[in-house]
């Protein structure tokens, strides 16, 4: 196991994949949170009282985001990695796809694709948990909507904190900035409702 972990560590260092995956994690996690927030607020404003409807829509959207994230990141990252490897092969005058450099590139492609696909998917699933409680009859659907909105806004705040930690700036301000974007979405949705 330690041999395997050592190998993974070398691949991480060689492919310099950590900052890329951090970027993808926040970017797509943010997307996932915002989409679920939009769906939940939309359902609330439309006056739906069916939690199954919200869960089904939310799951559909999260699977779509997960798949699009996975394949989108896989294809773009693979293209970039092949290009970099080709340039290095030209300098070395030999094929490098079977060397540790080629293997690290392949690992980085799959890793980035997984991060990009799973981050919006899991964030969406977490935001939808209150509706499962609502289906089971523990809480009314309106409460589930409030809880879900709260969880999603909290996730946005956490993503902001994560970014603040990376940039070593004030984490609370960074978190509030992200939270504000979620609140703006909420506000716009309510304005739409008023206009309609």
């Amino acid at each position: 196991m330690s041999e395997f972990l050592k190998k993974i560590k070398i691949y991480f260092e060689l492919s310099k994949v950590a900052p890329i995956s951090r970027r993808y994690f926040v970017m797509n996690g943010f997307d996932g949170a915002m989409i679920i927030l939009g769906i939940v607020i939309g359902a609330y404003l439309a006056g739906t009282s069916n939690p199954i409807w919200i869960i089904t829509t939310g799951l559909g959207a999260s699977v779509a985001m997960g798949l699009s994230g996975f394949y989108g990141a896989y294809a773009t990252e693979e293209a970039e990695r092949i290009r970099t490897l080709n340039n290095l092969e030209k300098s070395m005058l030999k094929k490098l796809d079977k060397s540790i450099i080629g293997r690290a590139g392949k690992f980085a492609t799959v890793w980035v694709a997984l991060i990009d696909g799973l981050s919006p998917f899991f964030i969406a699933i977490i935001s939808l948990i209150p509706f499962i409680f609502s289906i089971l009859g523990f809480i009314p659907v309106v409460h589930a909507i409030y809880f879900s909105m709260g969880i999603t806004l909290f996730i946005l705040f956490l993503l902001g904190i994560f970014l603040g930690k990376i940039s070593k700036k004030n984490i609370i301000i960074s978190g509030i900035k992200m939270l504000l974007v979620g609140l703006i979405l909420t506000l716009i949705s309510f304005v739409f409702k008023l206009v309609a």
């Binding site: 290095l88 070395m92 005058l93 030999k94 490098l96 060397s99 540790i100 450099i101």
Partner: peptide, 13 residues
């Protein structure tokens, strides 16, 4: 041969 394999695995020639 082991040395050669390692150098080649590291992308060297």
């Amino acid at each position: 041969n082991t040395i050669k394999k390692i150098i080649e695995d590291f992308g060297g020639a």
